[in-house]
Design a protein around this nucleic acid. Structure first.
Length: 332
DNA sequence: CATTCGTGGCG
DNA sequence: TCGCCAAGAAT
């Protein structure tokens, strides 16, 4: 992993933010590009947010990027550009929670601090036969105390990483490879045959569905784009103008409602695509339209952009899908 | 504390 | 096809 070839606390910090809820193989190319673009803490502190979000495009959880930059700016201004080397101060930085604090402290500074993530809770729940629900926030404290007891003071970095890697490669969520496990003789769950029922983790509720019409509004060589609000889902990302429609609406009714709400703005809307996009906690069902407009005024939070400018705007999954279908038609 | 925040891979 | 899951933090 490229972030294990550096001792720079800033670069290790970057990697730990990217790795939140994200697989190693997904992060690697993003990390490499990011470090090339923002090699030092000051480079990121001074970066334009749109450029930053464009670098983050496709990684998801975009508030991570904005919180990361906020934290980096705090370090530049209040800590002389040196990432704090104690839990109290580093935890005060935006986007740095209990796990990331411990990860950076142990990996970058060699300090014996716990770094409890999902892997660690799964591994230790089995080894130590801990049957608390790991979906509950307060349960993490139990594992933090356990790690504090057993962490190596000679090499806390390797200890924390080793625990996580054991979880990623051997002590997996389903069908753990106990026969290959180097610590199976120390594992209480293995001895009791409970490795397949631990950890205890309650189910999350199922996702809701929303129906949208997404409209690529074109005037000659430009498209009307809209920036999303500064908070909430896909904050500050750009999109083709969207209309929320009734979930149980018929396709023909969507087109009727569309031409009704865009009366005077667009000439005729033609449906060009239809797709589903799954987020963590909700689903978007999107019907994509293309329409021409004679009116080139841009409402609030909207801009007319050329195809080249469109390529510079940070856009998320659903807009990416719309853009691709426009490209396939030759509209962009 | 429960919910909100993306995306891609996998059984 | 679909639910589950992944090196979590903010609200």
């Amino acid at each position: 992993m490229p972030w294990r070839r550096t001792a720079d606390p800033y670069q290790i910090w970057i990697s730990e933010i990217m790795l939140q809820q994200t697989r190693v193989d997904t992060v690697i190319p993003y990390y490499k590009r990011f470090i090339e673009k923002f090699p030092t803490l000051d480079d990121l502190a001074q970066a334009d947010e749109q450029i930053l979000l464009k670098q983050w495009e496709g990684l998801g959880y975009y508030s991570r990027a904005r919180n990361l930059q906020a934290g980096v700016k705090e370090v530049a201004q209040n800590y002389g550009g040196i990432v704090p080397d104690n839990r109290k101060e580093i935890s005060s930085l935006k986007g740095v929670g209990p796990y990331t604090a411990g990860a950076v402290l142990s990996i970058a500074y060699g300090i014996p601090e716990h770094a409890v993530d999902g892997n660690v809770m799964r591994v230790l729940s089995r080894i130590l036969l801990i049957e608390e629900d790991i979906a509950k926030p307060k349960t993490r404290k139990i594992f933090e105390e356990a790690v504090t007891e057993i962490i190596s003071h000679e090499d806390p970095s390797s200890f924390n990483q080793g625990l996580m890697e054991l979880g990623a490669l051997i002590c997996t969520p389903t069908s753990p490879k106990c026969l290959l496990c180097p610590v199976r003789e120390h594992c209480a769950a293995f001895h009791e045959g409970k490795q397949n029922v631990l950890p205890i983790k309650t189910k999350t509720k199922k996702t809701k569905s929303l129906q949208y019409a997404m409209i690529a509004i074109r005037n000659e060589d430009k498209f009307l784009m809209e920036q999303r609000p500064a908070s909430g889902l896909l904050a500050n990302m750009w999109q083709f103008p969207m209309l929320e429609t009734a979930v149980d609406i018929l396709p023909v009714e969507i087109e009727e409602q569309l031409s009704e709400s865009l009366k005077g703005i667009v000439d005729k809307a033609e449906k060009i695509t239809s797709f589903k996009h799954v987020f963590s906690h909700l689903i978007w069902n999107v019907d994509g339209f293309i329409a021409d407009s004679k009116n080139i005024s841009a409402p609030n939070h909207m801009r007319w952009v050329t195809a080249e400018e469109l390529d510079l705007l940070p856009i998320a999954g659903p807009v990416q899908k719309m853009k691709i279908s426009l490209q396939q038609r030759g509209d962009v």
